[in-house]
């Protein structure tokens, strides 16, 4: 385990060496941003709307009482989405979608000698392959999480409109009620950390693939599993430290 951790840290150090030519790396970063950001928008939108709707329905189910104001459903849905559901569920889904793609792409390049070809040319292969993905992950995943929060809250609104448990006016009033800005900070820190974990862990797994097609699949699976575990662990640490 310590050997792997050491190799992971050394690989990250190699990844952030001075680029051979900044314009070529910039083009790669843009390409990765489109792939991670725009490419994941659909799945993030779908899960966010449904999670927001379900969170609203279940909160309403548990808290409807004459003693509790109905606006609290909106407040709880908002805080749940901002603090936990949007960053964490989005990250876990993206670990599957983006992470497996990164691990299998780099792993295939390794087993087909494309990484060797880069090294022979004098290209810093970890820098060219990994740093654009990590930079794109750290910038695009927070943006996806912001989209997820708004779509989740929209999902909650739709759930209210479709049922008689809470009125949409109460829900909106709840969303506006006593928002603590620290929740937004926690959300942003979580999203950036998860973006880093997904891209770097999966890139590491792909980069040290050896063998053939079977091992590429195994690397992708390992990348997704390890990054999911790391996301949950980081979630706990960030929540404990910042809240």
């Amino acid at each position: 385990m310590f050997t792997s951790l050491g190799r992971y840290i050394l690989l990250l150090r190699l990844s952030f060496r001075k680029p051979e030519k900044f314009s070529v790396y910039w083009a790669e970063i843009m390409r990765e941003m489109v792939s991670i950001g725009i490419g994941s928008l659909g799945i993030v939108a779908i899960i966010s709307v449904f999670i927001g709707a379900v969170a609203t329905i279940q909160t309403a189910f548990q808290l409807i009482s004459n003693l509790i104001p109905k606006t609290v459903v909106g407040s709880i849905t908002r805080d749940s989405m901002v603090l936990e559901f949007s960053p964490t569920i989005t990250a876990l889904v993206l670990a599957g979608r983006v992470g497996s793609s990164i691990a299998s792409q780099i792993g295939t390049m390794r087993v087909t000698e494309q990484i060797d070809a880069l090294e022979i040319m004098g290209v810093n292969a970890p820098g060219y392959l990994i740093s654009p993905k990590v930079i794109s992950g750290v910038t695009m995943i927070p943006l996806l999480v912001i989209v997820s929060v708004f779509l989740g809250l929209t999902g909650g609104y739709i759930a209210c409109a479709a049922s008689n448990d809470v009125t949409t006016a109460d829900y909106i009033a709840g969303l506006k009620d006593s928002f603590n800005p620290i929740a937004a900070t926690v959300c942003a820190v979580k999203a950036m950390t998860f973006g880093f974990i997904i891209t770097s862990v999966c890139a590491y797994q792909g980069f040290y693939t050896s063998g053939g097609a079977l091992e590429v699949g195994q690397s992708a699976t390992r990348g997704v599993v390890y990054s999911c575990v790391a996301i949950l662990f980081a979630d706990l640490v960030i929540s404990r430290l910042l809240l």
Binding site: M109, E113, Q114, D116, I120
Partner: peptide, 14 residues
Amino acid sequence: RKQIGMLFQNSALF
């Protein structure tokens, strides 16, 4: 390395 060209067994094209 800039002066090296290499053809790999499986071509290793990107």
